[in-house]
Write a protein that binds this DNA or RNA. Sequence first.
DNA 1: CAGTGGATCGTCT
DNA 2: GACGATCCACTGG
Length: 190
Amino acid sequence: MILPKSFYRNDNVVESAKLLLGKMLFTKINGTITAGIITETEAYNGAIDRACHAYNYKRTARTEIMYSEGGVAYVYLCYGIHSLFNVVTGAAGNPQAVLIRGISPSINLKTIEKRLGRKITSSLHGPGLVSKALGIHYSHSGTSLLNSKKIWIEDHGISFGKKQIQVTPRIGVDYAGKDALLPYRFVAEI
DNA sequence: CAGTGGATCGTCT
DNA sequence: GACGATCCACTGG
């Protein structure tokens, strides 16, 4: 089942980040479908979160997409090399997003391995790799997860118990001061 | 293993 | 003009 609009409307982005664990992230790029089970996420809690690009309701051409109603992709270029894929959540005007940091490749491994240029040995850790594996590019920012038929998320009934989910501070957000310590990263054990 | 530094470019100041 | 929600190769132990 494709995740419905109501899933993305949740204004509690931390809960959304947890709920996304175990969901299947699909892409159809140039007619080729690939997918993986989401195993690692981070919550970015909008205007009140120093680590969020939209902190203090900052608006730029890049971050504008985060102000959309939940259910679109926010993809941006990091370090000039990596496209980082986020799921925009919450009501319109509430700039929250969940960064997808890890997947367990599950459909069309051949294509995924080709994109990565190597064999897959286990699940993929790192937001740059997730995008590379699934063929997501920063030009896909703004793509709808509800009706674009390019990027979408399905619920296949996979879920994790509390004991299988590790909670830690987020990675690479030292600049965020106190907010860098928030327990907004969720890692599922495979 | 851990630690380090280079790659690389759109975005914002 | 500086820098980043990163990754990888390479070093040394």
